[in-house]
Amino acid sequence: MSAGFRTLLWKEVLRFWKVSVQTVAAPVLSALLFLMIFSHALSSHVEAYPGVGYTQFLVPGLAMMSMLQNAFANSSSSIIQSKLTGNIVFILLPPLTPGDIFGAYLLASVARGLAVGAGVFAATFLVVPLPVASPFWMLAFALVGSALLGALGIVAGIWAEKFDQLAAFQNFLVMPLTFLAGVFYSVKSLPPFWQAASHLNPFFYAIDGFRYGFFGQSDVPPETSLAIATGTLCALSWLTLRLLRSGYKLRS
């Protein structure tokens, strides 16, 4: 790990941590609002898994959704802000490698994701106690899920030339895919077509596997989910590194 990489990672972590009310506390609050609304509206109707109440079912999904969305927001907004203000030159002029840049933005996104996830559990654990069936699966999916969206955020940040393009990426891709990834329901409850469609959504595996870490139950075996999520992460990382190496939209 080069010193340049460590510095960039540190800077990226500081960047969100210095404004953590906005970058951590605010998303935790939205997750809590979702939790209150949906658990109130649906708790009497649904039991997703045997022995798991709807509110309990909801918490890991909401936590993961917040982690995914914030991991994406972290890298994408940092890169586009640097591009638009021009201070991206501070990163482009030093001898940082594409790997340094990729790794630093990715890990900072993971850090933000984990901070938000931890915040959601910290805010709910007194009201909604959760079992932890397997810390390993829980942690594995937290890391891979945040990394996946961190990488996607890097791609979006590089590609977008204006804030509204980034907002479009977020509103038309990231939001629908996270909302439809089985946060609020078990996809088993869906009609066969939508069930199949959900299985094409890589975020579904992150949420489903993460939930397994708590309840020991899931729609898809966690090994399969982890393999698919990790495979997607690898493919996306390969693409991101290629973009960074080619200088696409960064070194005109």
Binding site: G4, R6, T7, L8, W10, K11, I91, P94, P95, L96
Partner: peptide
């Protein structure tokens, strides 16, 4: 930070 990017 700028020093750090140069590994210093």
């Amino acid at each position: 930070l700028q020093s750090g990017y140069f590994g210093l």
